[in-house]
């Protein structure tokens, strides 16, 4: 066990953990950032998605020591209910949630998509979100939310 450096949402931390501990555990247990969800624990559902240097990764399968100097962005790093990000506001406007457990992964994937492509097609949105499961079945609204965000981003 050693002190592992971790930069999350612009802040530097040192996590006392085993090198192979999942990044998810560091975020949730050590940094108390609960926006990142534990879903399947196997990288299959996308609920634990975070952005590392703009790339979406599954934090449940990512060793905390792998992150190194890369910048981690979680759902909390995008915005809050008082000042949501464009994507978060679009999800609110489209009422694109039921239980909401998948929202972290959906919004992370959508944010990363819009950062690399400003006006994605519906097919591209579907492909970008294909690794994120929503068992409530809110997909249609989620796609509309991403389209709305694409239109509203500055």
């Amino acid at each position: 066990m050693s002190a592992i450096p971790l930069k999350v949402n612009g802040q530097n931390h040192r996590i006392d953990a085993d090198a192979d501990m999942p990044l998810l555990y560091a975020l949730r247990n050590d940094l108390k950032l609960h926006g990142t969800r534990f879903g399947c624990g196997k990288g299959q559902c996308g609920a634990c998605s975070v952005m590392v240097d703009g790339q979406v990764v599954r934090s449940c399968l990512t060793p905390v020591s792998w992150v190194g100097r890369r910048a981690v962005t979680t759902l909390e790093g995008l915005g809050n209910s008082a000042k949501p990000s464009v994507v978060q506001q679009a999800f609110i406007d489209e009422q694109a949630a039921q239980c909401g457990y998948c929202m972290n992964g959906m919004i992370m994937s959508a944010t990363a998509l819009l950062q690399r492509k400003r006006n994605p097609s519906e097919t591209e949105i579907r492909e970008a979100l294909a690794g994120n499961l929503c068992r409530c079945g809110t997909h249609t609204r989620i796609i509309k939310a991403v389209q709305r965000a694409a239109q509203q981003q500055v």
Partner: peptide, 8 residues
């Protein structure tokens, strides 16, 4: 919904 999309 606002709390659900912001991690709160």
């Amino acid at each position: 919904i606002p709390a659900k999309v912001t991690g709160e």
